[in-house]
Simulated scan of single mutants.
Amino acid sequence: MSSPSQSFALAGGPVLVASDGTAVSHEALFNAGRLVSSAFGGPLEVIGVCEPMPGGAAGMDVLPVPAELDEARRANMLDDLRRSVNISAAGDPSWPITVLVGSPARTLAAEADRRGAALVVMGIGRHNPLDRLFGTETTLATLRESRVPVLAVGPSFPAVPTHAVVGLDFSVASVQAANLALHLLAPGGRLTLVHVRPRFEHPSADWQAWDVEYGRTLPPLFDQVTAQLDVPRGVTVDTVTVRGDPAPALLAYAQQANADLVAVGTQRHSLYERLVVGSVTTRVLRTARVGVLAVPATG
C-alpha cells in the first residue's frame, strides 16, 4: 500500500508559490517552494491574485469599475512578481508567473485544484496587524477553501527544516501531514509525533478509570501510525504525549523543542463550523512562530 506522502509525490503536480510581489519574505517563500518542488518532483510556478476593485456608488446605483483598471493592476502585480523573482537570491527567472483577477483565497484554491497542484506555498505575517490581516488571514481563508496542502512560512523559515512536530490525532489527515513533513526534513532530521491528551481535572473514579484506559490505547495507536510512515533514510521519528488544549499545547511543545515546522491535518467542516467554531489548525496558523504545514484529508 502506498503511503499518503507517496500519493502526493507521484501526482507530479506543480508547486504553487503564492505572492502579491510585495512580501518582505521572498527569500523564505521561494526557498520553501524550491524545497517542496525538490522533495516531490513537481515544477515550481509563481502565482498572484489581484482582487478586483469594488464598484463605486452613484446614488442608488453601483457603477462598474472599468475593466482597464483591473487589468492595469494585474499588470502591475505581474511586474512586481517578475522583479521579486529576478532580484531574489532564491528566485529563478525561468519560473512561470501567472497573475489572475479574483478573490485571492477562492481563486488560489480553485487554481490549485484546476492545475492538480501538489502544494501551495504562502506567506504568514507576524510583524504587525496588517501582516496578520492580509498575510495570515488570506492564508487561512485559502486553506479553508483548498483541497491541497498549504505550507505557510515566515521570513525565518529555514532552507531545509531539521525538526518537524506533527499534531497527531490519529486521523487520516494527521497521518498524511506526518508523511508530507517527513519528506521536507534535512538528512538526519527529526519528526516528532505529538498527541495532545484532554486535560484531566475531574476527581471521580469513572473519569480516572477512563483516563487510565485512554492512556493504554496510545502506545498501539502510535505503533500503527509509525508503521504507515514512509521514513527517509537517516530521519528519526519519535512520539510524545502532552496534556492541554490542542493548539496551545502543540505550539508550546514545538517552541520548547526548537522545531522549524508544525504539521497538522485538517478536516472538511460545514460553513458554520469554519466561520464560527474555529479549529485547531486556525489557532495554530494564527499563533505559530514557525512554518505551518496544513494537510487536508484526501481519503
Score class of each variant (00 low, 15 high):
T241F: 00
D230F: 04
P198H: 04
V235E: 03
S174L: 01
V172L: 11
L221M: 14
V196M: 05
V240T: 10
R197D: 11
T226I: 13
R197W: 06
A186G: 05
A178D: 08
N179T: 07
V240N: 03
V242N: 02
A173T: 02
E201Y: 14
H195R: 00
V240M: 12
L229R: 03
A227C: 08
T236S: 14
G188K: 04
S204E: 14
D230S: 09
R199Q: 15
P219T: 05
V172N: 10
S174M: 02
A177Q: 04
L221W: 09
R216H: 14
G189K: 05
W207S: 13
V231P: 04
V240W: 00
L180Y: 08
A205G: 11
V196Q: 05
G234M: 00
D230H: 07
A186Y: 07
L229T: 00
P187Q: 07
L185V: 08
Q208P: 09
R199T: 13
A205I: 14
R233L: 13
P187K: 09
L180M: 14
P232D: 10
D211P: 01
D230I: 02
Q176I: 00
H183A: 08
V225F: 01
R216M: 11
L193W: 03
H183E: 10
V196N: 05
L221R: 15
P220M: 08
R197G: 04
L193M: 00
R197A: 15
S171V: 09
A227V: 09
V194G: 03
Q224H: 13
A227K: 14
Y214S: 10
L221C: 04
S171A: 12
F170E: 03
P232A: 11
T241C: 07
T217Y: 01
E201C: 10
T192Q: 03
L184Y: 04
G189M: 08
A178H: 02
A177N: 00
P187I: 08
R216Y: 11
V231H: 06
R233S: 14
L184G: 03
V196L: 08
S171C: 08
G189V: 02
A178I: 07
S204V: 10
A205S: 14
Q176G: 15
V175S: 08
F170S: 06
D223K: 12
L180H: 06
P232W: 09
L218S: 03
V194N: 01
V231I: 15
V175L: 03
S204Y: 12
A209N: 14
V225T: 06
H202M: 14
A177L: 06
L185Y: 05
G189D: 01
E213D: 15
